[in-house]
């Protein structure tokens, strides 16, 4: 380890250092083990050459362990932030431009998420080629399609509309 103290600051030495990004998004304070779901939500699987760093089960003050995700060259939209709250309710999102954090917001659970998830109910009108945007009410423990009223509590990440 001696050969990689590129950073003088040794208070952070025992903390996993993922490289600083120039422009993009840092998603911090993701609950331990959820980082891959965060990437799934953002539709990032590495096939498009994005520069992504993931720290999993990193020691944290706020949680026993946290995950952290850094994505170079990608700023999250509000819609993406909204959906992220469903699986990472405590996350902090830092938008970075030219190595500086320009926006830092704590994620808040929205009342509804629109156009991001697709309804798992094959009999739902939103799944049938109609010109309608999906809409889910965010419940304390899940999401609910406002059209067919199906409640989903688990595997919400699987509903993310990647189309």
């Amino acid at each position: 380890m001696s050969d990689d103290h590129d950073h003088h600051d040794d208070n952070a030495a025992h903390e996993l250092r993922v490289s600083k990004i120039q422009d993009g998004t840092v998603i911090d304070h993701v609950r331990g083990g959820q980082a891959l779901n965060v990437l799934a939500i953002l539709g990032i699987d590495g096939t498009e050459g994005e520069e992504v760093s993931v720290g999993m089960n990193v020691p944290s003050n706020r949680f026993a362990r946290k995950d952290i995700v850094k994505v170079e060259g990608r700023e999250l939209s509000q819609d993406e932030v909204d959906v992220l709250t469903l699986i990472a309710p405590d996350a902090t999102i830092n938008i970075v431009r030219d190595y500086e954090v320009v926006e830092k917001h704590r994620v808040e659970r929205p009342g509804y998420v629109e156009g991001v998830l697709s309804c798992p109910n094959a009999d739902c009108i939103t799944t049938g080629g109609e010109p309608v945007t999906s809409r889910f009410e965010v419940l304390p423990d899940g999401v609910r399609c406002t059209y067919c009223e199906t409640i989903v509590r688990e595997e919400i990440a699987a509903l993310i509309d990647t189309a």
């Binding site: 109910n121 739902c124 059209y147 067919c148």
Partner: peptide
């Protein structure tokens, strides 16, 4: 036959729409 059909259709019209059954809804 689709659940939520009446809710969706009502978003597209101004006249009153009465749901007479939307699938299992």
């Amino acid at each position: 036959p689709k659940q939520g059909a009446a809710a969706m259709a009502s978003e597209f019209v101004d006249v009153p729409l009465l749901n007479a059954g939307d699938g299992a809804g």
